[in-house]
Design a protein around this nucleic acid. Structure first.
Length: 242
DNA sequence: AGTCATGTTGACGA
DNA sequence: CTCGTCAACATGAC
């Protein structure tokens, strides 16, 4: 379910609940449900993989992790994590990590790190990366403080598109190549959004979950490199190890 | 039926 | 204190 673009789709899907009053809140989320009742939603935002439902002086941070789902005016049979009842509608979340946080998201988030945000700042991202020269690029790309919203699918695709071997150390990658990677992280995330909305995401995958390199026609490696040990698909021939 | 995965956090021991 | 490893959470596709 959840990389940044999928959370943007969720945000858009529930945008109509903005300025609506929560009549009742239920579910097994470990938050004070009473705090939500009779409160009006003031904005619905996102930061990377975080969905933010904001009220006057607090907000809900909803993270779908790996298996999180939601339903509008429907319910699943799995345990309800959080259900928000409005006058004529219900919004249900399942298997999500939900926290109620006092204050405004502006007090906490660096919007310039979110690849889906207009405020994303390439220069700041490059500066953050320069501080991590010994890290493998496959780990750097998943660093949510630098590339908030980038997940394992986007990681694999942008390293393939830019022809960077996932085990390359960040400090060894030429500046122009590094800049291209950051630009591609943003550009591909919006492609992901467009394709996902059209239910055409999978058919655009070049490396993720693929067996063969679409450029060289040789088998792709499938390994779990770096600190994060997330699945990496790569071609020894097409991708350069820096 | 067992394995695996678009994710993150916290406990624990070296 | 830091590092790495593991468990936990929990669902559904294959």
């Amino acid at each position: 379910m959840p990389e940044g673009p999928s959370i943007v789709i969720l945000k858009e899907a529930i945008a109509r609940f903005n300025r609506k009053k929560v009549i009742k809140a239920t579910g097994n989320a470990k938050i004070d449900m009473k705090r939500l009742e009779n409160k009006t939603i003031r904005s619905i935002r996102s930061w990377g993989k975080h969905l933010l439902i904001c009220f006057d002086d607090f907000y809900l941070r909803i993270h779908l992790l790996m298996f999180g789902t939601y339903r509008i005016n429907e319910q699943k049979t799995t345990p309800l994590r959080l259900g928000l009842q409005f006058k004529n509608d219900t919004l249900n979340f399942y298997t999500a990590a939900i926290v109620l946080i006092d204050g405004s998201p502006d007090d906490y988030y660096d919007w310039s790190a979110d690849v889906m945000n207009d405020k994303f700042d390439t220069r700041k991202a490059l500066k953050k990366i320069r501080a991590l020269p010994d890290e493998m690029i496959c780990d750097v790309v998943l660093d949510q403080e630098i590339f908030s919203g980038v997940g394992n699918i986007i990681k694999n695709e942008i390293l393939f598109i830019t022809r960077i071997h996932p085990e390359s150390r960040a400090g060894n990658i030429p500046a122009a190549k590094m800049r291209a990677l950051v630009k591609t992280a943003v550009g591909y995330s919006f492609d992901f959004l467009k394709w996902k909305k059209a239910f055409q995401l999978k058919k655009h995958w070049l490396a993720y979950a693929k067996k063969k390199c679409p450029r060289c026609n040789i088998p792709l490696h499938k390994e779990y490199p770096g600190r994060k040990k997330r699945r990496s698909f790569f071609c020894d021939n097409y991708q350069v190890r820096y």
